[in-house]
Design a protein around this nucleic acid. Structure first.
Lengths: 72, 72
DNA sequence: CAATAAAGTCAAATAAACTTTACATTAAAT
DNA sequence: ATTTAATGTAAAGTTTATTTGACTTTATTG
């Protein structure tokens, strides 16, 4: 999973700690997400989207996961 | 958190079990998400978005969570 | 250079998502 | 009315996100 958090922070000149506090998570959580250690939860992704006024997909990009529908 | 999974399923005449299998999660997971017992993970939300060819926000809607930025 | 802020990392603990198994209820059938 | 498919639910266990606290490394900047 890739994400634009670092760039979005940089555009606003925010530290990881400031972003963490705006999103009400720990600084380590922001660091880990920026470094791709894990996905944020959906609620956290929504909060970030609202904070930056962007769609979730404009902040977090999934590496394409395959999806196939079985014939009904 | 509200979501349109049940409607999207109905439009396609899919059962919870079929959707679960397309998304590679258990039927109980789909049931629990539809009933609002918990949020899906972000990876699962992405997979659903890709399956239905919709944005995450068009499937899952956050009940507005407040977000405020502290002065830098 | 020395001091400070920011970023990176690790380990241990908690919380939330998700699985499996199993059973109960509802709805659709003839 | 009884079978069958779909949905709902619950408990116990696993995995993943997140926290807290502590420490190290990399920038800044005085």
């Amino acid at each position: 999973m890739k994400n634009r958090l670092k760039v979005l922070r940089a555009e606003r000149d925010w530290t990881q700690a400031q972003l963490a506090s705006a999103l009400e998570v720990s600084r380590q959580t922001i660091n880990a997400i920026e470094k791709g250690k894990f996905y944020p939860s959906l609620p956290l992704a929504f909060k970030a989207a609202r904070l930056f006024n962007l769609a979730i997909e404009d902040i977090f990009q999934d590496e394409v996961t395959e999806v196939t529908m079985v014939k009904s």
